[in-house]
Simulated assay, not measured.
Amino acid sequence: MSNDLPLPFSKNRTQEMLAFHRLLDIMDDLREKCPWDKKQTLESLRHLTIEETYELSDAILEGDKQEIKKELGDILLHIVFYAKIGSETGDFNITEVLNGICEKLIHRHPHIYGEVKVEDEEEVKRNWEQIKLKEGNKSVLGGVPQSLPALVKAMRIQEKARGVGFDWEEDHQVWEKVEEELSEFKAAVENGAKEDEFGDVLFSLVNYARFVGINPETALERTNKKFIKRFTYLEQKAKEAGKNLSEMTLAEMDFYWNEAKSL
């Protein structure tokens, strides 16, 4: 079969392509006819994309599948929007975006598209980081975005260091480091340099969480949501009692807090 002939597609794949083509056509219409869409730039869309990403994150944590589907659509729209603007300036287009990620994935998965053999997930990660260095990255940590939230950044830094073999061997070693940093922080509270030592405590806790298979960002956000839910219940009970929270005793607040925990 000639390489110039179109590839056969399954019915589902054809439907996917038609749906994507429909989105591209709608984007063309909006960019030409809608006053708001016509004004947008790469820079003006940036903060909106960040917001959409956080909304997707919230939907995932809530386990709301329909909301996840909706937010994925919003993010896909943003990708198409950026590509449309790029095509107008002649810098890039959606075809180049799609082919670019396809080529990158093929290149970075030689165990799938080449002759490389791997034993497990960790070996895949190590190969990935080595390939990135060969592609021109000056540092293993160079791919960590500077604007990432600190907790997420700490996790990514540690994951990338692990990818080239720089890591602890046993989880008890990591926990001993946590205890060491806690001890140093306690001393610093009394003698100074509290912020630096507290940062070390957080970094070591992120390290331990990663080592035992916990995503610290997800864990902390679930705790945030849990606190908000219980505090909102506390506010509701205070309102039902005709009081402001500031008028309640700690004993009263503890009662309703413990009641919220059992819900």
Rank of each mutant, 00 (worst) to 15 (best):
V116L: 04
P110G: 08
R31M: 05
I79E: 01
K84M: 09
E71R: 05
L56G: 08
E71W: 03
G100T: 08
G73M: 02
Q40P: 02
I85N: 02
L48G: 14
R46V: 07
I75S: 01
E96S: 13
W36V: 14
T41I: 14
K84Q: 13
R31F: 07
P35Y: 09
F92A: 06
G114Y: 00
D58N: 15
Y113R: 03
E71T: 09
N99P: 00
G63V: 14
K69Q: 04
T53W: 03
L42P: 03
E67D: 14
D29P: 02
E51A: 14
K70N: 11
K39C: 06
K38T: 06
F81G: 00
R31V: 01
E43F: 14
I26G: 06
V97D: 00
S57F: 10
T95H: 14
A83V: 04
C34W: 02
I75Y: 02
F92L: 13
M27H: 15
D74C: 09
L98A: 11
L105N: 15
V97H: 02
I106G: 00
E103L: 10
L77T: 03
C102L: 05
D74R: 03
D91F: 13
P35L: 04
L76D: 01
S87C: 02
D28H: 04
D91I: 15
I79N: 00
I94S: 03
K117S: 09
P110H: 05
